[in-house]
Amino acid sequence: MRQLIGIIIAISFCVGISSSVKAQQDAQYTQYMYNTLSINPAYAGSREVLSAVLLHRSQWVGVDGAPTTQTLSAHTPITKNLMGIGLNITNDAIGPSRQTYIDASYSYGIEVGRESQLNFGIKAGAHLLDVDYSKLDIFDSTDPNFQSNVDNKFSPQFGLGALLFAENYYVGLSVPNVLETKHFDQSNNSNSNTVAKERISYYLTGGYVFDLSSDLKLKPTLLTKLTEGAPLQVDVSANFLLYEKLTLGAAYRWDAALSGLVAFQFTDAWMLGFAYDTDTTKYTNYNDGSFEVFLRFELFKKYNKMLTPRFF
């Protein structure tokens, strides 16, 4: 049955390149609160230190051809924390296709009152698409749509974002890519009469930190994603921070999945986190869930070391 689900994934991909229009989806994260730069360039520099995150996600474990994602992001403030720069590299694979995103971010902030800051961000980069049709079990080997692989097909990326934040809250609005890119059209492949379009996605994120006691904090967060031609995605989560070290939480992706999250701050510089998702759909019996693991490193200046680490 799991091989059958894998075949369905491959068929879905093939349908996406053999029909008139299909939407390409951004990579999905459960621990988006630790990986905000990937969806909002205004986050660059907001942690006030050099911060780097390495994340891996395996979705629908046990299913052949299921999505896997790896992300490396790093950002740092410049010019008294009012400007920031960042770099994000993402590798996203599903079935016979692999997509690589490489982009650089820049943010500029203005002080709002005594404790808040409003950042505006832009990012620009490249999207590379590879498709290896030899990974498919093609019924008709003479089908012209599958005669030539796609190798490093380039598309430009340009994104915008805004982030209002303070020590205990943040609200973000972003569009990771404002360009709609067509793949597999006749102008690029004379053997193909297909079009797959990368749709624009709009993100709204937010979070707040409640001090329940001197050793316990609660942070609820929200992520909403709106993409034309796709269902509205709503993620809500609640994380507890104990003794400034251990984070425990749960998340719910509307009509899709339930998740458990855990993270541990080993030192001021190093943090390790893990999340596990279980589907709430009819496909839950055909996979072993999804998981994410991330590692964060932060370089503190000696004169700017945080006594209380930021919770987001």
Score class of each variant (00 low, 15 high):
F240M: 12
W270Q: 01
Y283Q: 11
A250D: 08
Y252I: 00
Y252W: 06
A263Y: 13
L261T: 02
K245N: 12
W270A: 13
N285F: 13
A256K: 11
A238Q: 06
A238G: 09
R253M: 03
F240N: 01
L258I: 14
A263I: 02
F274P: 03
Y252K: 07
Y276C: 04
R253A: 09
L241H: 11
Y252T: 05
A269S: 15
A269W: 02
D277Y: 09
T284A: 08
F264H: 05
A263T: 00
L242V: 07
T247S: 09
L272N: 00
G249V: 01
N285E: 15
F274N: 03
L246T: 03
A263V: 02
A250K: 01
D268E: 01
T280M: 11
T280A: 11
V262D: 02
W270Y: 15
Y283M: 11
E244H: 12
M271E: 15
L242K: 12
L261Q: 03
L242A: 14
W270L: 15
L242Y: 14
L272C: 07
L246A: 08
D277H: 00
F266I: 12
A269Q: 15
W254T: 05
M271K: 08
A263C: 10
N285L: 08
K282G: 10
R253H: 14
Q265K: 06
D268Y: 10
E244F: 07
A269D: 04
G273S: 10
A257D: 02
A275D: 06
A257Y: 11
L272P: 01
V262R: 02
T280I: 10
D255Y: 12
L272I: 15
A251G: 12
W270K: 11
S237W: 00
A275K: 01
A263N: 04
F274A: 08
N239A: 11
M271G: 02
W270D: 05
A238H: 00
T281G: 10
K245T: 03
L241V: 13
L258F: 13
L241S: 04
A256I: 00
W254R: 10
L272A: 15
Q265T: 04
M271W: 07
Y243M: 11
Q265S: 00
L241I: 03
T281E: 04
Y243L: 15
W270M: 08
T280K: 11
W270S: 01
L261S: 04
T284R: 13
S237L: 08
L258V: 14
L242N: 01
A256D: 13
M271L: 15
T267P: 03
A257I: 02
Y252C: 04
W270R: 02
F274S: 03
G249Q: 12
G273V: 10
A256C: 02
